[in-house]
Nucleic acid binder design. Structure first.
Lengths: 341, 341
DNA sequence: CTGTTAGCGCCTTCAA
DNA sequence: TTGAAGGCGCTAACAG
């Protein structure tokens, strides 16, 4: 006797074959009905859908993907979920994916390129439709895998070097440079910089470099720098500014590595009754919504995180001409004229 | 002549068979090496790994999953990525998943139960190892699918009703109740409530109900309520408090639906020079890190979002006795004695 | 320690 | 408009 095919508590779910038997048509017909493919008699369709409903059939996309060699998964690899910026990118990705029936498989690197490599490898094993990664910086092996995967690759956030396929983001170096120019125009001369861990956040480093370049063109330099050894946070920004101000150096503006840090700076000033802007100007980066809700709106640069995620997916779904020349999409940024600088 | 099997620009990637041929062993042996399964001669292993490296073989997990009926995907369905709370849960999930080799497929419902149903259906089609969803509230169909999926299901955040399998979270009703008790103990009597859209956020509603119950036990009620018609945000909290205070009603404490809203309330008071705590106390919910960094630390209740995600995954990976009685894991919460109440 | 055989559940191709 | 045959790439089960 052949092994019992369907015991109670079946390990394997209901299959197409069973729907086919119940509705009295062939498997392929059921498949066609479910995928809306090819012409189907109205009557047949009804029978099939009824059967599907009756036995609660759930299609097996694993088998479907294997058979058709087209998955509806995309791989997404981001550095962190603690930094609000990346959930916002993810949000943009999901919003663009919504109607497409494509699902995102998400990996988080914690800013580690080796972890990224591991994640990319295992995500590629799912034969995703496309791959979205953050940044243009990867290990050799990651780069090779992505190049050779034969699918669309979007590198998000950054556009300061050459992408594998598509890059969607903004120039962080330019943003830093423009920060410097803007603040110089407003009359600030004694610049302090308050930042967080650069080894992790390469884009913060690029903004810093841009800022320094702008100052150099004006014959200036940073008067003082305070770096928090760890990820950015409001508390870190608050403490780092306190530390910097505790030193003899007198500055008239503090440029922060991002808004989280800058908001912390604002809090420090509020707590210590330091006149913001009059005695010390504060400038951030990102344009987070909290900055706008502060008692005095934060002066900063708005990046478009949601748009970056959304556009990356759009580009990939449009898929005009698979993989020609590397493409760069500059999402841009804009200066937010707040009340802190 | 049989069809060309491997043209240039191959559509199908490199397969086990090719690795096998190159290394001079059988497919299954290569498979075993790659999965570290069974005993393999050292020599054989080396040959295989060399071949894998040479031709850059990437295993196809789709085929593997189909063949073995065990996937290493888990489905995750959350309401939102805009509310910081859910990225934190996701973060906990990823951290617990890290070493397991399991990947998360993420869906976002935007607080819509019909969308949730659609997402659950399509995630189940990937035959995930387990499924994590937010909340205990689902459509009939979602409930049936999850019950019948034959995999572990964790419902996160909430524990105020009976779960399908495992619930990991806290009692929001109790948190609301304890908020009331705590503030009554501290002498507050004239309570105002500032909230956001309840239709979406059922847990905020539960906290509200708990608060009202506590007040009722003390023979009191809410003096005034202001509800923002939309998702919670700092700006919404700021505006809503302004609106509430603009009315004649005099309150001595404002309870906010969450910390985002409460921080907005603090900002309003700072901007209007309203003495926080002396003239108006402020209380939030969640214990976000920004609350602690404010000039005066926010009084609130700390929920453990990261832990919830992490524990949910742990429970599922441990998988002691598949699906017996519904299990509830109470992650708890604690009152944060800040300086705003 | 290694190989053979036979699918996993679905979809592509070809035929009717 | 429908069906039959075969295979996607891998792995379980059983030999050897």
């Amino acid at each position: 006797m052949s092994p019992v095919k369907h015991r109670r508590g079946r390990k394997h779910g209901i299959t197409l074959a069973e729907v086919a038997k119940l509705s009295g048509v062939s498997e392929i017909t059921v498949s066609r009905v479910l995928r809306d493919k090819g012409a189907i008699a109205d009557d047949t369709r009804k029978k099939v859908l009824l059967a599907v409903d009756q036995i609660g059939y759930v299609p097996n996309r694993v088998a479907g993907t294997l058979a058709s060699a087209t998955s509806n998964l995309i791989g997404v690899v981001i550095p962190s979920l603690s930094n609000i910026v990346f959930p916002e990118v993810l949000n943009g990705i999901h919003s663009a994916l919504e109607a497409s029936g494509i699902q995102a498989v998400v990996g988080v690197t914690e800013y580690d390129l080796t972890t990224e490599e591991r994640l990319v490898r295992s995500l590629l094993a799912w034969k995703p439709h496309a791959m979205l990664v953050a940044g243009l910086d990867h290990t050799e092996a990651t780069h090779r895998m992505l190049l050779g995967a034969g699918i669309r690759i979007a590198e998000m956030m950054d556009i300061d070097s050459t992408p594998i396929d598509i890059a969607v983001g903004m120039s962080h170096r330019n943003a830093g440079f423009d920060t410097g120019v803007h603040l110089l125009e407003r009359g600030y001369r004694r610049f302090g910089y308050v930042g967080h861990d650069w080894r992790a956040d390469r884009r913060a480093r690029q903004r810093y470099d841009g800022l320094v370049a702008a100052l150099r063109e004006a014959g200036l330099g940073l008067v003082d720098v305070e770096l928090h050894d760890g990820p950015s946070s409001t508390m870190a920004g608050r403490h780092a500014l306190a530390t910097l101000l505790g030193r003899a150096s007198s500055i008239d503006v503090a440029v922060f590595s991002n808004d989280d840090m800058a908001v912390g700076g604002v809090f420090h000033c509020l707590a210590e009754a330091i006149a913001i802007k009059d005695r010390l100007a504060i400038f951030g980066f990102n344009g987070l919504s909290i900055g706008a809700a502060l008692p005095m709106p934060l002066s900063t640069i708005r990046s478009h995180r949601f748009e970056i995620g959304k556009t990356a997916v759009r580009m990939i779904l449009d898929d005009k001409g698979s993989r020609g020349e590397p493409t760069i999409v500059d999402i841009g940024y804009e200066i937010v004229f707040g009340a802190t600088a």
